[in-house]
Structure formats: structure tokens, C-alpha cells
Amino acid sequence: MQQPWRFVNTGNGTAAFNMALDEALLLVHEAGAALPTLRVYGWCQPTLSLGYAQNTRQEVDLAACQAQGIAVVRRPTGGRAVLHDQEVTYSVVMPLLADGPSTITEHYRRIGMALATALQSLGIPVCLARPQVRTAPARTLASPACFAALSRYELSAAGKKIVGSAQKRAQRTVLQHGSIPFWMDRQGLFQCLRMPAERRQVLVQEAYTTMGAVNEIAPTPVTLPALQDALRQGFSTTFGVELVEVPIAPEEWRLAQHLQATKYSTDTWNLDGTVVWRQRQPVEKV
């Protein structure tokens, strides 16, 4: 057995808090002051999260989100838009792998195996997407939704993507977090995103064949505690570690609160986005 990992269930949080705590866990681990962590959590209100490089003002219909009570937050990780609602969100903060290549793909593979073990234990016939050489479609042509495209070592069941994940890599630490929906609100997701009505209609239709959710596929309904427990067991088995319940440290709370206030609650981070977007294209105010 290796060094144990920490397991924390932080329950439902706000969009800003959830992202802030994930980044705080990454930063404190990077500083060498924390165990690897599997965190599970949920959301106080439906939330659209965006990948680091997505241009919020261009890609999101902020008025539609506001009208539907959907919060919007930009993640520290890559990837595309996810509508978090009825789901379990997992986040893993772990060191670079010591027993193999510590590449993006290898972390996806290992974590994918843990997620697969968890979901298979609940009777869901998942498989890992096989690696394939491909050329990424131009960002402007690709669907802005995370669940629309299956990347290497992401999970599918019945041919549909059922876990959407994204990574942030620092010098010594990897943060990977992802959404495991119980149900998939395809219409709601695409209503949050700016696009011509015809394209939205096409993408929503496609979503019924490409996007899945746990309780659309599971033989018997899966509950929140059952999925949380399965994740804990799946990571323990796959990584050969014990997951012990250790509370979030005061230092981590303080850093999370700081990041929540100064970064993830601000329009500068969530709406105005990266330096690149700000410099390159003045966009209409919504």
C-alpha cells in the first residue's frame, strides 16, 4: 500500500466556491503540504462551467442563463462547457505519476480506470475510449459542449459519453475534475450557449445519441451516496491506496475563500476571460 489518499465530501457548493476549493487543493498539494485527494461535491444551483480558454461573452447566452437561474463560472482546467445539475462532481488532486509516464493521457487513463471500476460496480457497462490519432477540429467548428465529444480514455456507456473531465497540470501536481450526471438536460445545456437556432436544434438532436447519464443507463436507479461510495472504492482499488476521511485543512479553506472572492466570483475571471480574449477582441457587452 502506498501513502493513503484523502477523501472529502464537501456537499453542495456555489460555483465560485467549488472551483476555488479545487484550485486551493491543487496549490497546497503543489507546495507539498497535502495528501493526494479525491473530493466529491455538488452544486447549490445549476451551473454552467466553461473551459479555461472558452470565451464566455462570445459562447454563452448570459441572459438565458440568468433567466433560468443558472450560474456561470470559468474553470481552471481545459475542455468545454458543462451544465452541472443533478450529478456527482469528482475532483482528484494527485502528484505526477512515479511508476509510469506522467502524461495527460496516462492520467486520463488511470483516473478513467478508477471511474470505470466505480460505475461498473453499479452495473453500468462503461468502457474507456480508445486512443486514436486524430486532428482536433478547429475550436470554432467544434461543439462548445464537453459532453459532445469523447476524448481519449474518457468513459462511455451504450455508446454515449457519461463522464466529462478536464485537467490542470502544475509542476508536480495534476488536478482532474469531472461531471458524472445522473440525468442529462440536453435542451437546457444548449439553451445556455450562443448559436443560431438551427444549429442548436441539430446539436440537441445529436446529443440524444452522443451524451448519456448514469440513471439513463443504469439497470437500477443509482443514488447519490451509492455513487459517492463507488467512486471512493474505485479509486482505492485502481490506485492501490486507502482513502481516509481527513477534513479540509484551515490553510486550504483560507486559500479557497481568497480565490473565491478574488477570482472565481469576479467578472474579470468569469466573463472577461483570458488575457488573450481581452487584448484581441473587444466584444459586445451582454
Binding site: Y52, T77, G79, Y108, S151, Q167, K168, A170
Partner: peptide, 10 residues
């Protein structure tokens, strides 16, 4: 940062 498919790296 550089973002490749699905990951942001410092």
C-alpha cells in the same frame, strides 16, 4: 499556459 485537448498546463 498552454491548452491541449482537455488539459491546461503551466
Amino acid at each position: 499556459v498552454v491548452e491541449s485537448v482537455k488539459a491546461v498546463s503551466d
